[in-house]
Design a binder for these strands. Structure first.
Lengths: 128, 128
DNA sequence: TGACATCCAATGCACGCGCATGTAAATTCG
DNA sequence: CGAATTTACATGCGCGTGCATTGGATGTCA
């Protein structure tokens, strides 16, 4: 039965690879072409948007890192890109000046809302 | 039902992300630590090994490219690394001198056979 | 046959990533 | 309190990837 389960995992893995690559490549391309966003940039916006409803979405770097499959350094640079693009602002935390709060700017919220259908469309196409 | 299917794909996608990242990171780390192989390098050896049984596994670059989720340039460099490591040899094709044949060296076959259990073990761990 | 399109593989280049390290702030403990 | 440890984030660095281009070989067609 070990051998049988071994066969299963290979098939399962190649299926996972197929779906993952197809979807993530098209996500990357579509988001970049239509909205000028990389996939991990979109994902940061998504977390920020979900994390704190409408008001003024804000979250700590560490919390975002915990929700993403991205190293601390990669997240830091991704946020830098988003900040330069004016989609996000960093704000020092009053009570722990090591930590940063991230906030969506209005423009950031707009761009995210605009990109959301593109994102969902690609997922439906590849996972439905 | 569109909305419902939309919800489904999000869950499905985050599940795919979770499994893919966990497995591919551990594959990368384990193969590197135990056998000095990157994941895409292992995958090339795997295709070569499967592609032509024992005799002297050989396949065209294009055929390998078609079986992998890797660009032509990335494959070219991956093969260069394998060649430098002595695990693979390039041989010009007699009938079409644009094409290259790839062949596993004995050392390459050995290294692949040694790494195979590591690879399968990680997959079982994450997909069983 | 000669001009042009197509195909295969290699390479220049820019980019995003992870690892290791640096800096500053907070926490722990003698 | 003060030194050592830990935590949060930024940054230097090397690496693997994809895109665009190049060079060489093949195919096509008038």
């Amino acid at each position: 039965m070990e051998a049988a389960s071994g066969e299963d995992v290979c098939v399962k893995w190649s299926e996972t690879l197929r779906v993952y690559h197809a979807a993530s490549c098209e996500l990357e391309n579509e988001l970049q072409a239509r909205h000028g966003l990389g996939l991990s940039e979109f994902e940061v916006l998504q977390i920020l948007s979900r994390c704190c409803g409408e008001g003024g979405g804000q979250a700590k770097m560490k919390d975002i890192e915990a929700e993403m499959y991205l190293s601390q350094s990669a997240l830091s640079r991704t946020v830098t890109r988003l900040e330069k693009a004016g989609l996000v602002t960093r704000a020092a935390c009053e009570f722990d000046r090591r930590a940063n709060f991230l906030m969506l700017t209005p423009t950031g919220q707009e761009r995210f809302d605009a990109a959301k259908p593109t994102h969902r469309g690609v997922l439906v196409k590849h996972l439905a």
